[in-house]
Simulated assay, not measured.
Amino acid sequence: MLDPDQGAQAGDLLEEAVSHLREYWDRVSEEQRQREIRNNEMVADAYDVRDDVPCDVLLERVSLKRNVAFTYPKDTPEVRNEKFAQDVVKELISYAVGCMFGRYSLDKPGLILASRGETLDDYHAQIPSPSFGPDADNVIPVTETDCFEDDIVTRFRRFLSVAFGKENLAANIAYIEQVLGKSIRKYFVNDFYNDHVKMYSNRPIYWQYSSQTNNKGSFKALVYLHRYTPKTTNVVLNYLRDYANKIADIADSLERSDRTADKKQAAKLRKAILECKDYEDQTLYPLATRNLEIDLDDGVLVNYLRMGKALRSIPAIEKKRKEVSTWTWPVHPLKEEDKEVRNGKE
């Protein structure tokens, strides 16, 4: 992450902060290389073999995550710069989402909400007046069509304004989109969850409800596992219905246009409305009526599978369904209604 002690401070341009961070880690990596060389020399001197064994250490062998020579050994300096910036920006986005859910805070280092049963009251007990507060209902919409005042893109823009200054927002958004190679909305809709699942080794702590089990769902929403309650799916259901109504209004307006592009977009939205209706009837409403409880001690694998088709399919988790269905130790084991194998593809 961008650490204030490493050159990134509120009010900085993000591009400058990333550059300072790169300079910091280049310096730290070289310092570590010199320590390892000195260690080798001391051992060689102790055995009187200084002239017989090499003591030098290549920078590529210094195993620090932020050492670009170690992390991207086969790339050119230019590509290393690009990959370093992209990795840092993605980690910043991940941290921002954590702040949106109350896992982290700009006002206090370390984890804030990360234990079973913790609520916003626990958050405010630690941070009474946060500069950037967590989402109230633990559901953040992630949709291609801009329909909500509290969706993930809006919240991310607020985060950047607080963390790096409102006066730098436009420049920081432009820099992030240049580094990602796409708009922030497209990144959140198409890529963020893939990166999150990879970061957490197929055991995500943010779960994505999706109207399709692959990555093509029109409606998506993120929730934080540690703040999940039996009512969470009901909250998502309300967002789904609201989303379907909003895009129906947009479709009505576009259909009155004479432009071919508008009519094409209206047809796309009509298809999305049908998709959302099917998701509601076949999946989300039945799950919401169950008021499903989870126990964090059961682990992500068991709990994720118990959510059935409501969540985005993760192949590495899905392939464990048959095995997990035989386990008897979980507090809430898979039941018959949880055991349907899904065929969603990434």
Rank of each mutant, 00 (worst) to 15 (best):
H124S: 05
G11C: 05
F70L: 03
A85Y: 00
S253W: 10
L222N: 01
D146G: 00
P128A: 13
P134G: 03
V189R: 04
R342Q: 11
N214D: 15
I37W: 06
T229F: 08
D75S: 11
I184S: 01
E177Y: 08
K246T: 11
T326H: 15
E323D: 13
E144I: 10
A267F: 04
R61M: 09
K74Q: 13
L284S: 03
V197Y: 02
Y193A: 02
N190V: 06
E346R: 14
N194D: 14
N238P: 00
S94L: 10
D122Q: 03
T213E: 07
A44T: 06
F84K: 00
L296E: 13
P315V: 05
A248I: 05
V88N: 00
D249M: 10
I37E: 12
N138L: 06
S29I: 06
A267K: 15
V62D: 02
D52Y: 11
L292R: 07
K186T: 15
S218F: 12
E91K: 12
C276W: 00
K335Q: 15
D87M: 10
D3I: 11
E23F: 07
Y24F: 15
A17F: 03
D137I: 09
E336I: 02
R35H: 11
N194I: 14
S210T: 12
N214K: 01
S129M: 06
D122M: 00
D122R: 08
L14G: 02
L296K: 02
E340G: 11
A221I: 04
L64V: 08
K90A: 09
D5N: 15
E293V: 06
V139K: 01
G98S: 11
S218Y: 11
